[in-house]
Design a binder for these strands. Structure first.
Lengths: 197, 197
DNA sequence: GGGCGTGTTGACCGTTCGGTCAAGTTGGTG
DNA sequence: CACCAACTTGACCGAACGGTCAACACGCCC
């Protein structure tokens, strides 16, 4: 009796969905790729949408791990933001090299796709994106306190703009292949922060 | 014999897809909403993907009309960019008020969704996004020539960043409702241009 | 050993999907 | 009027969809 069935389903589903979209991946696809029967799937997940929520949470956990790694480092706030952007873009490029197709952000598009599926999904999606932009906002606040950043900008606002910018650059990369994504993203983020490139 | 059947299909399909995603809208949905039988649909479109391409082109035509209106105006380049951002965000908000749900960008997500469906789709998607960012790039170039903008930035690069930023802000708005989208987007675009807010 | 909870199996359900088709209907043209 | 092309109709196809179910296997604890 394999105890890792649920994890296997989630892992496989994450890859499949990341490569396209939630709607385009069927429960059957997931089961086949995970070597699991549909009955087992529905033993762990009440519905396909329930899997979607789990996927969103799992992907957010992964992104948050990257955020924590970058933002817990003993470096000035601007450099911590840079480190995350580097890591985030690097992850996307890595997936692209492994799968042959540039993926989008594993969180943003999924959140946008799930949001209309119910109030709980929309709430969760909003929470996740808020939490994410909060990391940027905190760094901006600290940068302003240290004098690295001008005080004129609203940190929460800038945090949201940086998150939006990353989401958009990931989307464009999906279409154009995303060459030099990390460097190009860094300069844009710097501009949004009002800091020299 | 109504000659506007094809147009009606496209118009209805644009609305349905704009509200969710291409994959989540079925040919049946489109036909029912357009008051058309499936046989008629396949008289005009060889496949569902063919409709997707048409939708991408039609939506791009609409966005390009907004671009032309803003960028043909006798105003300095920065103001022309502002005017487009204003118009673009205003259009999204208008759709939101009419349908009750904040839509995403009618072009970007569709391009990203269609891109993996074949080489021709990916090529078309890349062309559209290139053309769009080109409008921004041209304005940046002109702004630099006039001395409104610092010369250090690569216009093509900045154009792409502005487009990505707009795409991302639209995606976030889909989740959070997008209050004050236009104003918030304008300040971010200004920052990316390296111009005062 | 016997029961029980956790997983697993594979067939099955009704619905919907993208797509097809032969038979009709219409409007325009000669 | 006859004819042809453009268009419409509605039934139909096989496959895939999300989801269900009763029967069954295993590990664990009393």
């Amino acid at each position: 009796m394999a105890r890792d069935t649920r994890e296997r389903i989630v892992r496989v589903a994450r890859e499949l969905v990341h490569g396209s979209s939630f709607a385009q991946v069927s429960v059957e696809d997931v089961c086949q790729a995970a070597g699991v029967h549909k009955g087992s799937f529905y033993h762990f997940f009440g519905s396909k949408d329930a899997l979607g929520l789990t996927l969103l949470d799992t992907n957010w956990l992964l992104v948050r791990a990257m955020l924590d790694e970058a933002f817990d480092a003993p470096a000035p706030p601007l450099q911590r933001i840079d480190a995350f952007v580097q890591g985030f873009c690097g992850m996307l490029v890595l997936v692209a090299e492994r799968t042959g197709t540039m993926p989008g952000c594993p969180v943003g598009p999924l959140a946008a796709e799930l949001a209309p599926h119910g109030d709980d999904a929309r709430t969760r999606a909003a929470e996740v994106l808020d939490a994410w932009s909060g990391y940027f906002a905190d760094a901006v606040r600290e940068g302003q306190a240290r004098g690295d950043l001008a005080r004129g900008l609203d940190p929460a606002e800038v945090g949201r703009q940086v998150l939006g910018y990353l989401q958009g650059m990931a989307l464009l990369a999906q279409v154009d292949g995303g060459a030099g994504l990390a460097d190009r993203s860094r300069s844009g983020v710097r501009a949004l922060l009002g800091a020299p490139g």
